[in-house]
Amino acid sequence: MNVLEIKQLTKKFNHFIAVDGVSFSIAEGEIFGLLGANGAGKSTAIYMIAGLLKITKGEIKLLGKDIKKNSKFAKMNIGFVPQDIAIYEDLTAFENVKFFAGLYGLRGEELNQKVTEALAFVGLGDKEKSYPKRFSGGMKRRLNIACAIAHKPKLIIMDEPTVGIDPQSRKHILESVKKLNETGCTIIYTSHYMEEVEAICTKIAIIDHGKVIAEGTKEQLKTLITDTKDIWIEVKNSDDIDLEELKNIKGIRAVQLVNHTIQIHSDAEVNNLNDIILHFMKMNIEIRSLKENAPNLESVFLTLTGRNLRD
């Protein structure tokens, strides 16, 4: 069952085409990462999914229903964590969450209970009565998330939820994203931090100039670019190394010795680092340094779009 299905989604601002015929679908239980440089069209696409921006052309279906025709249904089932923190500094943390959850029609005892749950979930259970004025950036971010999840939406959209916060809060947020996912939420996650996306997303789409140029799991994206990796091992004494025997280790395609460095060219898919190190240990060869040059999301992004994520 697809939670979200997007077909030929297009947004034009006068002549400027911000989103150009984007199509993808997100299955239930996915953490879907959207990668794109500034101005690539990520936020525009997200705003259209969240119903905050009119669609120029195309179709968005949430749980099989067109969000244009079922806007109330869509709003009840989407939780949106915006990039710019949207909380009231003059209300307590509890009142903030209560206000936003109340907008979704929750009332009375149920409302209070869900607000408490949401605050506890983001780790602000003991700060119910505090005012966000005194919160750190990370705590504000977490409160921002609590506001979006109290009404238990099926789909949560997080637009750069880790911008400008301390490492501890970031860790907490990433963990809560995973926890939310485990409770059955489907999540759309955008970030400038490639390593976050690589760590938590089960599926990733790369957007550039309003178009999805690649989509898939991180392994699939990496194989688009290359299916090999290079491992460089510098040793103290390279005289009695048997290169031929190294080649027998699974996945290794070629080996050569340059000065005191053994350069190994291997299949990227095979994890053979242990076997290689073990081989050196058995031969009693002292390893000085080891460098693995495997494809990562950063290099995939750079190769496909010709630019860095953070320009």
């Binding site: 006068n14 002549h15 400027f16 085409i17 690649a214 194989t223 688009l224 670019i225 290359t226 299916d227 190769t303 496909l304 010709g306």
Partner: peptide, 21 residues
């Protein structure tokens, strides 16, 4: 590349941000 061909044609001219398709 491994599963994809990338063809880039790039000039050093004045560019255009508001081009019409």
């Amino acid at each position: 590349l491994n599963q994809i061909i990338k063809i880039v044609i790039k000039d050093n001219g004045r560019g255009s941000l508001g081009y019409t398709k």
